[in-house]
């Protein structure tokens, strides 16, 4: 194949599809759709907890959204930086530390505010298995959406991009599940939410190495 002929063919293909959708809109659109599907699934199955009106007045309930949404925003930026070949992902990667730092602060406060005898019951909570399973299942649609966008992108590090997508998807899933979850202690969140997100992130990283090469 002569390079000139290849260029001719690529130019003809470009003429047939002259305006590929910018990756930004693919990413935004896919994530909105993925989160929308997860939100509908959440509303139809788990739903927001019945005592939300009083729960929303407690800092522990609200703080679950602060941490999960902080993680969602920072990991979305990380995915976006990893999706394009010339973008530098380092500062976006460092910013992901914000959510764990917030969570650590809340855990330390909880350990100080709650007597030691209350630590274990709060950490174990009322339904940790449902928490992990729900977050993993709610991650599926946002994760598929992030992978769809990344496959149109060009991640130089497919495994890392997959992991970042897993973090983003599971943070969105955790933010949804938090609205249902009766356990509000940061001790519970630090263990079970983190376990679910680590599981999704690990699987997504392995999947990324296979599916996100280009």
């Amino acid at each position: 194949m002569r390079t000139d002929d290849l260029i001719g063919a690529l130019a003809q293909d470009h003429a047939a599809h002259p305006k590929p959708q910018p990756l930004r809109w693919t990413f935004v659109g896919a994530m909105a759709a993925g989160f929308g599907v997860a939100a509908i699934a959440f509303a139809l199955t788990l739903g927001i907890r019945p005592d939300v009106a009083s729960a929303i007045l407690t800092w522990r309930y609200d703080f679950k959204f602060v941490v999960t949404l902080t993680l969602a925003v920072t990991s979305a930026r990380f995915v976006w930086q990893l999706a394009r070949p010339a973008a530098d992902p380092r500062s976006a990667g460092l910013a992901i530390a914000a959510a764990p730092v917030l969570l650590l602060g809340a855990v330390l406060y909880e350990l100080w505010a709650v007597p030691a005898s209350g630590w274990l019951p709060r950490a174990i909570g009322s339904n940790s298995v449902a928490c992990v399973v729900s977050i993993v299942l709610l991650s599926i649609a946002p994760l598929a959406a992030a992978f769809y966008a990344l496959r149109r992108g060009a991640p130089l590090r497919p495994g890392l991009a997959g992991a970042a997508a897993g973090l983003l998807a599971s943070a969105l899933a955790a933010a949804l599940y938090a609205a249902h979850c009766p356990d509000d202690s940061p001790l519970f969140g630090a263990i079970w939410y983190t376990a679910a997100m680590a599981l999704v992130t690990g699987v997504a990283s392995a999947a990324g190495r296979r599916l996100l090469r280009w």
Binding site: T3, P22, L23, R24, A83, R84, R152, W214
Partner: peptide, 21 residues
């Protein structure tokens, strides 16, 4: 390599931002 790179540039041209170098 030249041809594979040209093909990749073509198929991934949506990943270049107009405000980027």
């Amino acid at each position: 390599v030249v041809q594979e790179t040209l093909l990749a540039i073509h198929l991934k041209r949506q990943t270049w931002d107009a405000d980027q170098l």
